[in-house]
Design a protein around this nucleic acid. Sequence first.
RNA 1: UGCGGGGUGGAGCAGUGGCAGCUCGUCGGGCUCAUAACCCGAAGGUCCCAGGUCCGAAUCCUGGCCCCGCUACCA
Length: 593
Amino acid sequence: MTEHILIAIAWPYANASIHVGNITGSHLPGDIVARYHRLKGHHVLMVSGTDSHGTPVTLRADAEGKPVEEVYKRFHNEFIDLFQQAGISFDLFTTTHTENHFKVAQSVFLALLKNGYLYTKTTPQWYSPAAKRFLPDRYVEGTCYLCGYEGARSDQCDRCGNVLEPEKLLEPRSKADGSRPELRETEHYYLDLSKLEPDVAEFLRARQSYWRETVISQSLGQIESEGLQPRPITRDLDWGIPVPVEGWSGKCLYVWFEAVIGYLSAAIEWAKINGSPETWKNWWTEPEARAYYFIGKDNIFFHAAMWPAQLKGAGAQFLEFFAGQPGKPLNLPYDVPANQFMNLENKKISGSRNWAVWGLDFLTRYDPDALRYYLTINMPETRDTDWDWAEFVARNNNELVATWGNLANRVLSFAYKHWEGVVPDPGELRPADREILATVESGFQSVGNHLESVNLRAALGEAIRLASEVNKYLDTSAPWFEIKTDKTAAAKTIYTALRCIDSLKVLLAPVLPFTCQRLHDYLGYDQPLFGEQYVEEQTDSLGSHTTLRYRPIPAGPLWQPSQLAPGKALRPPGPLFKKLEESVAEEERSRLG
RNA sequence: UGCGGGGUGGAGCAGUGGCAGCUCGUCGGGCUCAUAACCCGAAGGUCCCAGGUCCGAAUCCUGGCCCCGCUACCA
């Protein structure tokens, strides 16, 4: 049966480049699961985009003396470049700065308003007369009214560790320009999360059995101990989505509220530019559809508690405001398999200190599948992990190159050399041949189950273990010996081994799409394993924005054991991976900091 | 202070009640198809410490010690 799978990936913020921690945290795991479901023949919709709004972007633009649009677009285009090179195969990677997203976000707001989940409240906020704007709490520094520390942020003191009431800060100054802000009254909308708390708790309890422990404890656990408090969802800002209420000009939807709505608006945009504007509903309002959200641990509460509250609160009324007619309510997340963090050489990644491995920079020196392999086998699924350059080199050489790459290469070159470039005819297979085939083919269940439940390390480990089984089989059968005395026996061995690597190619393809495609070509196939990524410009009333898209191949399940036919023509093989010098570790370490 | 995550052979990790496992490294052997790759074997652990529960604990309970994160625009 064909399923609809929504792969929702965290939206990178438009004020910093993407590093390996970001990639292993959300983009790569999402892509692996998406590719797996595509191979299964399911209908996958994988979306994300650049989170373009908010104060940090405007401050950065001010600092550079450039228009804010220019700054967000620079990062947006950089993200697209990286995702294309790394094979992060979004059906649509867009941005929050689109006419469509504005309308979708405003419709969610209006639905919540109509359903009685919003209220307004007036509070004092720090206002900068110099910059003529309100400042976010963390951009106001001053003296802590509890301990007297002079470098406290208005919402939190670094020295005494207390959470502060921003308006009580002494000697306030703007972090942007040092000027002295003043308190001004301002009115904002609040999402009454306390009203939605029972719904959110029920939603989480229903999923408790299969969600990651860390995610449950940080969402359900926190709600049970502290409850859900109302939160403001608007800000005094001009770079963002206007509040769709008369008399509220100069105020925008708060980024935490608005950006997550991108998962919905991107699906809608995708359907629209595909010329089938209603199809997004297959993923969003059909209850059997499953939505997976790939995020880092810092985002757990927003995705596992707040976003479900927004969706539940908007409910069927979303369509009333968006399309002018009522419809089904929106689907809540099926799973939020959040990852922990990846450190770098035992220290926390820090962009500003250049303690980071940047995605684009990495790909100028190494291949994308080497990156994807190391990030997957070392993915922070249950705890923080560490990127260690020496380990990267060792795993690349010992596992990727030696166990898997060498297996494919030795089988292919032997076959190509001794059977004039075609798959040998094995005749009747021997018990040992059938046994190794059964072992490898069991991977479609075992590896598949791991991918299905988003245990990607385990999935990859299992696939590599199966490759190692084939190496043992080859050693036992020794076709290089058989060929001297009994070419028929060697044909059985090599045919069997070819079928094994043909199957392993599929099992590994979600993690290693580039090299598996190469192997697929060597094995003589003409149809590709996956569709292709391409860049396309979209135009709307806000101007134009670049999108990264994916052109799928005709549907049909490829996730099944090899059916390699004897006599099939092979193509001249070559090594799939590059072995790395051990000196690489030291060279790379010297780039840090 | 508080909250969270950890302490398992040289390194990195898996393992939540039943003979302690994986990858790498080390040592010895085999093979020569393959990117000096592949295969076999060996050495190496009081599973942080001390109590407790249990027929039985790395795994559960109690107490203690140590490390890391939450404190910076930074996932």
